[in-house]
């Protein structure tokens, strides 16, 4: 269950940033933080990595979004164990 802190950079030629912001606020998995006319901080909290990716793509495709930067990634404690943990290890 990943939690990520992202920074959205807005396209400076786009005039309807407020509309994009309200769509972001309407999405339950997203919490909107500090914003100015150029950038906006959000936190994405989703039940699975697949959902996280979906949200990420959705944000990326929103009108006026020029780019997303990752500020923080938090991972769940009980993540799927890595398959490579079965090794030649000795006890």
């Amino acid at each position: 269950m990943p939690i990520s802190g992202l920074v959205i950079t807005f396209d400076q030629t786009f005039d309807h940033i407020d509309e994009t912001l309200s769509r972001l606020r309407a999405e339950p998995a997203i919490e909107v933080g500090a914003c100015d006319r150029q950038q906006c901080a959000i936190v994405v909290d989703t039940p699975s990595q697949a959902d996280d990716k979906k949200i990420y793509q959705w944000v990326q495709d929103l009108p006026g979004v020029a780019g997303i930067q990752v500020a923080f990634v938090g991972f769940d404690d009980d993540a799927t164990p890595d398959s490579s943990s079965t090794t030649d290890s000795v006890d």
């Binding site: 939690i3 802190g5 936190v43 909290d45």
Partner: peptide, 23 residues
């Protein structure tokens, strides 16, 4: 994951993202 840890992670994520916006 317990909710306390989740809350902590979320506030850390927000702090990290906000600091990048605020410079």
């Amino acid at each position: 994951m317990d909710s306390k840890r989740r809350g902590f992670l979320k506030s850390a994520a927000m702090a990290a993202a906000s600091s990048m916006v605020l410079g």
